[in-house]
């Protein structure tokens, strides 16, 4: 019997949209019964949101103060303690899931499948390797649990018209004290979240300074878009790391992606390959970004971007 346990990602108040995408992936496995588990200190709102996710049977809640900051070292042993009876354990391939799931896999003595992009069967999946330059079909052994992360950009979130059963689970495993959360620094912004925004505008090294990046923000505001960046722009300190798009940043799939002053290195392109429409503005007509752009505009961004922004109502 295929029973899949999906770990909810949340911040104590809100269920991260990655969870509904992992559910969408798991629901593609024929005849699977899906449970979502919420590890938290007191995440009642999160539980309500999770119970609405279509396609799931139950929400399990495991309450522990140790889960407050979602440290892998705390959550992994709890997840393993409740894993019995599940054929699959899934998490998102966000920084949360990537940190947690391999630790779970190791405790269960199995390998993990990273970044599922398509389900080919209950134990057969496709995943990207070599920064997305190769797609690999893998098959997990059938006689042990499949532990995997799901490439969320490959899936549309399931709807939320459900009212799944909620069950509280007692879990009394001993937890380590060797890892302690200190602080989360995040540049809060009113703009749409990069990972879920329908439109994203990104700037690259060509912007030249953090002040100049304002023209990217101005365009994004007109478009109602989230803002991203290339690694070069982040490394140069124009914008913070959480804005990086690509192999080592965020993998996104907006309907519209506008790349400005970005050359289009493979490590960047792997982050946007599922975007609906890619627009590129670059002064070098030979830049690799034009190989993948649906609409290209060759010229100086410092002239073209303000003109574009002004032309939008």
């Amino acid at each position: 019997m295929t029973k899949i346990l999906i770990v909810a990602e949340h911040d104590g108040q809100t269920l991260n949209p990655s969870t509904a995408k992992v559910v969408a992936c798991a629901a593609e496995i024929d005849g699977a019964e899906l449970d979502v588990v919420v590890f938290s200190d007191s995440a009642s709102d999160v539980v309500v949101q999770a119970a609405k996710l279509d396609a799931i049977s139950r929400v399990l809640t495991v309450d522990s103060v140790s889960s407050k900051n979602a440290l892998a070292a705390m959550i992994a042993p709890q997840m393993v303690a409740i894993a019995d009876g599940y054929s699959h354990l899934f998490g998102p391939s966000t920084t949360f899931g990537k940190d947690l799931m391999p630790r779970v896999a190791a405790l269960l003595g199995v390998n993990q499948i990273s970044d599922i992009m398509s389900v080919e069967g209950s134990h057969t999946f496709k995943r990207p390797i070599y920064a997305g330059n190769v797609v690999l079909t893998v098959k997990a052994p059938a006689d042990r649990p499949v532990v995997a992360t799901v490439r969320t950009a490959s899936y549309q979130a399931v709807g939320s018209d459900n009212s799944a059963v909620v069950e509280n689970i007692e879990c009394t495993v001993e937890l380590p004290t060797h890892t302690r959360f200190v602080e989360l620094k995040s540049a809060s912004s009113d703009r749409p979240d990069l990972q879920t925004a329908a439109r994203v505008v990104s700037g690259g090294r060509a912007l030249g300074s953090s002040e100049n990046f304002d023209i990217i923000f101005a365009l994004a505001d007109k478009l109602g878009a989230g803002v991203g960046a290339s690694r070069a722009a982040v490394d140069a300190g124009y914008v913070p790391n959480e804005m990086q798009v690509g192999q080592t940043g965020k993998i996104i799939a907006p309907a519209l992606y506008v790349a400005i002053g970005i050359s289009g290195a493979i490590q960047h392109l792997t982050g946007i390959k599922d975007a609906g429409t890619i627009v590129a503005i670059n002064k070098d007509g030979e830049a690799p970004i034009f190989e993948v752009a649906d609409i290209g505009l060759v010229g100086d961004l410092f002239k073209l971007v303000p003109e574009f922004t002004a032309a939008l109502k």
Partner: peptide, 28 residues
């Protein structure tokens, strides 16, 4: 431990090269 079998390596689906527009009006 039993490994995860690697069954098939394939190139990814390529995005098609699109159009080049001449100016901002063309982009819009």
């Amino acid at each position: 431990s039993p490994v995860i079998e690697e069954i098939l390596f394939e190139p990814p689906e390529q995005r098609q090269k699109g159009v080049i527009v001449d100016n901002v009006a063309g982009l819009i």
